[in-house]
Design a protein around this nucleic acid. Sequence first.
RNA 1: GCGGCCAUGGUGAAACGGUUAUCACAGGGGUUUGUGGUACCUCUAUUACGGGUUCGAUUCCCGUUGGCCGCCCCA
Length: 471
Amino acid sequence: MPLKKEKPVPPKKITKPVVEKVVEKKEKDEEEGGKSSKTFELLRGFRDILPEEQGRWNLVRDTVRSIAESYSFDRIDLPILERSDLFQKTVGKATDIVEKEMYVFTDPSNRSVALRPEATASAARAYISHGMLDRPQPVKMWYVGPMFRHDRPQAGRYRQFYQAGFESFGVDEPIVDAQLIVLGAQIFRELGLDIKVEINSIGTPECRQAYLAELTSYFRPHRNKLSEDDKRRLQKNPLRILDSKEEATLELLQGAPQILDWLDDKSKEHFMKVLEFLEEVEIPYVLNPHLVRGLDYYTHTVFEFVLAQDEGDKSQSALGGGGRYDGLIQLLGGRPTPGCGFALGLERIVRALDAKGVNPPERSKPSVFFAQLGDAARRVGLKLFEEFRRAGVPVVEAFGKSALKGQLESANKLGVQLTLILGQKEVLDGTIIIRDMESGAQEIVDVKKVVQIVKKKLHKEPAPAEAPVSE
RNA sequence: GCGGCCAUGGUGAAACGGUUAUCACAGGGGUUUGUGGUACCUCUAUUACGGGUUCGAUUCCCGUUGGCCGCCCCA
């Protein structure tokens, strides 16, 4: 048999290829078995937020949380899945969000449910179902979490995206609107992002109705000048024509009626007061009479946080937006209750941070590595690891490696200051080696004292100041 | 949802339609088993997937999937 003849060949050369061949075969078999696709690809518009991105994300999340707390907003976590009619009713049946972007399906118990496209409706639902109107008003809540919209993906736009939102229920005073805007502006200030606040008022449903009629009749004679898109808007959602980008339309808009002129006195006064408050706290804002928001529940104040661009790249520059929704609770069957809120698009903020080169402070790296030789040393290592952890000294290890060489290599890559080496000899003697990675100097010490000694050493040398500059 | 551009290992790139798909970096393993940062060796891609044209396709065509850009819309 040929196999017998091959046996005398140096074992290394023969064993390796054989092992590899077996592995290859196995993989092939598996591939053929699960042949549908070689690897699983991400669903379109969905993404992983990788460990290396978490620094920026944490910066954003932490900032949001600390500001929310300092304005006494309470955290609420809302379900991702809700009955689909919750959104149809509130966001609006005719809106794109509900009409074509919502993930709707029937669940196993045959209910029509939807992946939340936004969370204000849920917050309002929660306000009602937990009888929050019996709490001191306003009820101020904030949340962060994923939202889902089946839109065409683009940079800064995903089908699963994260929003942080703030909602204030129960008080219709303009100061509530103003403080929410201040809160949002503070978040951006803290993050070091230049934004401008665009603001407008769309009044009550009643005066908006009157305005829309006027706007439609203004455009009617010019219908033939409008693009297909704008014609459609005029019919479906006339308000949207205000932020058209078509030149012909823009020209016509110059002479178009302004919504601000159609506000009733109460609405006008509310809006004026909001602006006054903003001036009081020196939040610069831009009055944008064409600002319209895409959700049906808005009333009175609407606003957006827009990235102050250095020209070009104007894509996805709206980092957040919101407004007042005085009819929302009632719409959902609650007692008439005013409310106001806004949401922030987290990936857009992270993206802006990225573009600006803002780097979060790096997480302090561990400065001690534990290298071990043999199982006895591993056992001791496991215990030592806990001791160090309790002493507040993070230690990294490579328990999976056995060769000292490889472990030192890892230690080096991690850039630790000290490496602890524990071999058979040391285990027997009850000692351990402390190696200074920079000088290479080693010292043998009593294991029982090693935590103290290491602590002292780390304090003495305040870590070389070669903090990696942004890359 | 509409239109355009694109698709090679973990990453960044290379390959007039023609030999075992090249390079760098990163990563794993090793250079006789207790010592790192250098060197050397070695491993890691059915060229996104599926069809077609061709003697032959990474290279041409079509479809699918995915990414990016503009529109719609929105965060």
